Amino acid sequence: MSEQFDSQIQPCPVTSTEQIPLTNDFTQLIATPVTAPTIKIPVVLAEPTLQIVVESDITLTPAATEIKRVKKHVFLNQVKLVPVNFARIAGTDYFRVTRAKLFVAGHIRKNIEYASSACSGALRDRIADVPFSGFTDLTFPQTIGGSTPILGISEFAEANFLNEATQMDARLDKAFFQNLVKYNEQPFGELVAANFFELDFSPIMAAPECTFSTLREKIVLELTVKVLQVQQIRLGAGSSVVTPVLPGLTPPVSPPGNPTPPSEFC
């Protein structure tokens, strides 16, 4: 009996290292009071849920007799915001976006497990990417007093001169140019959730124990995304978005009855 026990395969030895206990001391923190600090953080502009409807045919090789399980995930290739309507921020040369088109594109990754015609064969696996794309209309702000995308429009100006000798024609060899280029934070998207409603079937109904090689799927995808933009926020009571006033040839528009242009947009 002992010889039989010795002939059995024993577990392989594993090298281990004993860890040395480390001390853990409290780190004292000292707060510096700030009345109204200005921070730069991503601001949520919208969080829409888009309904996407797709239909596709997937070929199964070898042919299937039964679908066992289908797992799905969403991969986004783009979430792009295209502004189409603006309102000037009073006292600045910046604009807030009041309406925009949101373009979304990506694909649904499907992992299909199915049984083949073999009586005791292993489960087969088929991975397919189902593309989708589309757009939706967004209005801002989404809620009363909510955030909106903020963009600075670049400015170009040109001045031309008379011929000082005749005062009757233009000087084509003399001009003044001014360019103000504003570099904006690009609005971007984040994937939040995906809810799938799916019907899978063979276009030609197969009898029991018979095979089918095409799987037709109809998917309704409810896709939730966040649309964000990095903005400057002044903290404190009644936090507000801070926008700069840049020197340009076009003066900022002041609200009626307010001779001092404000530098913030709430």
Rank of each mutant, 00 (worst) to 15 (best):
P48L: 00
I89A: 01
V53P: 15
L151M: 12
P131E: 00
F26I: 07
V54L: 11
G91F: 06
T211L: 04
V253N: 03
R88N: 14
A170P: 04
V44R: 05
N258T: 14
F265M: 10
P252I: 09
V79P: 10
I52M: 08
N195F: 10
T260W: 05
P261G: 01
S263H: 04
F265W: 14
D169F: 08
Y94W: 13
P131M: 05
V192T: 03
Y183P: 00
V181S: 02
F135C: 06
C266K: 06
Q4D: 08
T61D: 06
D6K: 15
I144S: 04
P48T: 01
R171E: 15
Q167Y: 14
A115E: 08
I89Y: 00
F132P: 00
F86S: 01
A206P: 09
G91K: 02
G106V: 04
S120I: 10
K101R: 12
D93C: 08
F177G: 07
N163M: 10
F188Q: 03
T38W: 05
S254D: 08
V220M: 10
Q19E: 07
I127F: 09
Y114E: 05
D129W: 12
T27A: 11
D200A: 14
Q186C: 07
S154K: 14
T98V: 08
V192H: 08
K68F: 05
S239P: 09
L180P: 06
G91S: 00
F212M: 06
P11R: 15
V34N: 04
F176Q: 10
F86R: 11
P13E: 13
G238N: 06
V192E: 09
F201A: 05
L81S: 03
I9D: 14
T98I: 11
N111C: 12
R126P: 02
P256T: 03
I219A: 10
L102R: 09
E113T: 15
T27V: 13
T61F: 00
G146D: 03
Q178T: 12
I204K: 15
A100N: 07
F132I: 04
T61P: 01
F140G: 01
S147I: 03
T92N: 01
L221A: 09
T65P: 07
P203A: 09
P42C: 06
L235Q: 04
Q178A: 13
T38C: 03
I89L: 11
F177S: 08
P13R: 13
T17A: 12
K71L: 04
E3W: 14
Q186K: 13
V242Y: 00
